[in-house]
């Protein structure tokens, strides 16, 4: 993890935009068959910036962040991640996957491997790290997500919240520069959401660049530098959390916020 980042600021990312952006999306377009699911997405995320993406289901949020580590391929526009442009070139793909960690809604832990093996698999085979070193690293991160004692269990023996924290540790073991979260708390029981969000807050405090698709408005207010609202495949509004939540400019965001609040 880039420990050099100052953990001070929860403020606007303006201070850090002088360096090259961690992620740059320039007029990105994507189709599923004839359905135009991402429309002229322009988004620049600075190093260490924390962005929360929200919007109604089917608005393209997940598709957008899945384009960043190329689980989905965009068809038009440019995506530059950590100075590497995403193209059909397989070298860029390998490089990106090493730099970008991802946490899924349904955890996607490998059920046939122990927690420790889940965490060491990619460092050993992709980062070419010696096994001992990888295990030490994995234990460090498992300690940080507060479940070192579960290292030799299998995913099926853990609760949902614990599994999701393992998934975060697994992604961190690749020492990524950027972390993507795709609705990490949506599949969890209410009592487990907090432990996962706490882990994410802790991660945010270390200065990690994060993009997080979530409906947890409390989390957005607490850690986000910026909130992006998407609807029907385009970015409708974006800004600092207070401004966006307290003073929505568009009708679509107002409708969305009222639905979210009613739900809570």
């Amino acid at each position: 993890m880039s420990a050099t980042m100052d953990t001070a600021a929860h403020l606007s990312s303006a201070a850090r935009t002088d360096g090259p952006p961690a992620i740059l999306m320039d007029k990105v377009n994507k189709w599923y068959g004839a359905l135009h699911v991402l429309r002229d997405i322009n988004l620049s995320v600075a190093q260490g910036e924390r962005v929360v993406v929200c919007g109604p289901s089917g608005s393209g949020k997940s598709t957008m962040i899945r384009c960043i580590n190329r689980l989905e391929q965009h068809q038009e526009g440019r995506i530059v991640v950590d100075n590497i442009e995403l193209t059909d070139d397989l070298r860029s793909l390998d490089a990106i996957r090493r730099e970008v960690g991802m946490v899924f809604q349904s955890f996607n832990l490998f059920p046939h491997l122990t927690i420790l093996e889940n965490c060491t698999l990619a460092p050993i085979w992709v980062r070419r790290m010696p096994k001992k070193e990888a295990e030490a690293l994995a234990m460090e991160y498992l300690t940080r997500v507060k479940i070192p004692e579960q290292a030799n269990k299998y995913p099926g023996q853990l609760s949902g919240g614990q599994q999701q924290r393992v998934a975060i540790a697994r992604a961190l073991c690749m020492k990524p520069k950027i972390m993507l979260f795709d609705e990490p708390t949506s599949a969890l029981d209410p009592e487990m959401i907090k432990e996962v969000l706490d882990t994410m807050v802790m991660l945010a405090d270390t200065g990690m660049t994060m993009i997080c698709v979530t409906h947890e408005m409390g989390f957005a207010r607490q850690v986000a530098d910026r909130v992006v609202f998407m609807d029907r495949g385009e970015i409708v509004e974006s800004g600092v959390p207070e401004q966006l939540f307290n003073d929505p400019k568009t009708e679509r965001l107002k409708t969305f916020l009222s639905q979210i609040l009613r739900g809570h």
């Binding site: 689980l71 996957r97 899924f104 490998f110 698999l121 990619a122 085979w125 992604a171 690749m174």
Partner: peptide
């Protein structure tokens, strides 16, 4: 589940690593 393929991809495993470490052990079982 598709998530298993995606998680392996997201970690940067190659096709044969993904198949050998993640997919086949589970599918055969």
């Amino acid at each position: 589940p598709r998530g298993q393929y995606e998680a392996a991809d997201a970690l940067g495993l190659s096709y044969w690593q993904k198949t050998g470490f993640i997919i086949l052990p589970q599918a055969l079982r």
